[in-house]
Amino acid sequence: MTLLRTPTALLGFTILVVLALIALLAPLLFPADPLAIAGPALLRPFQDASLPLGTDRLGRDVLAELVHGARTSLLVGLAAAATSIIVGSVVGTLAGFIGGIVDEVLMRITDAFQTVPGFLLALAFVSVVGPSLPVVVLAIALSAWTGPARVARAEVLSIRERDYVAGARAIGMHPLKIAFREVLPNALPPVLALSSVIVAAAVLTEAALSFLGLGDPNRITWGGMIAEGRAVLRSAPYLSIIPGIALVVTVLGVYLAGEGVVEASAARKVRA
C-alpha cells in the first residue's frame, strides 16, 4: 500500500490504530468504573502489578483512567474535526460558487470567527451553554471551521471555471446540485488534508477545556487528569506526566498519519 510506504505514515497509523483499539476495548480491558477507588491513594507507578501506573489522590487506577480517557479524546477530536470540515466546506463552496454578495457576507463572517482566538471562543461558548460532550465538540468546531472554509473556497473558485461545470449548466442541472455534486467532491482533497491538524488541535483544546474544569464532568479526560494531578505536582508529578505523554503521543500519531495521507495523495497526483 502506498499509504504505509513511508516510515512517517507507518508510525502515525500504528499509533492511531493502537489508540483506537484501546479506546474501543476500554470497557473490556477495564470493566470496572474507572472513577471507583481501586487501592491506596497516591501509589506510585510500577509498585503494584495490579495497578501498573499507580493511583491518584483518591486511590483510582491511573491506567484505567488513561484508557477510558482515550475514548473521550479521540471521540472529541474526530467529531470536532468532522463537524468543522463539513461546515467549512459547505460555507466555502457556497461562497466560492455563488460569488458576489453571498461570497462577501460569508467570508466576512469567516474573518470574524478567525480573528477571535479559538480557545477564547470555545471557553466562552462552553461557559455559557454548560459543559457536556456535544457542547465541547461544537465549541471546538466553532473556531476550527474557518480553515476548511477558506481552502474549500479557493479550490471552488478554480474548479467552477472548468468546462465540466459549464457542461453541467448546459444540461440544465440545478446550480446547488452543481455546487455540491460536481464541484465540492473535486475540491475536497486539500480540505481533507487539513483534518490531521484540526484533529490534533481539537484533542489539545479538549484537554485544555477539561484542565480548566469545562470538560464533560461525567467523563474522564486526559486534560481533567492533568488538572487533578496539578494539586500534587511536586509530590506526585507522574499524575500529570502520564496523561501528558498520552496527549503528546496521540497528537503526534494524528499528525504523522495526516502527513502520510498528504504525501500519498501527492504521489498519486504525480503518477496520474
Binding site: R162, D163, Y164, A166, G167, A168, A170, I171, E182, N186
Partner: peptide
C-alpha cells in the same frame, strides 16, 4: 446542447 473542445476537461 453543447459539446466542448477539450474532452479531457469537459466531463467531471
Amino acid at each position: 446542447q453543447i459539446v466542448f473542445q477539450n474532452p479531457l476537461a469537459a466531463l467531471n
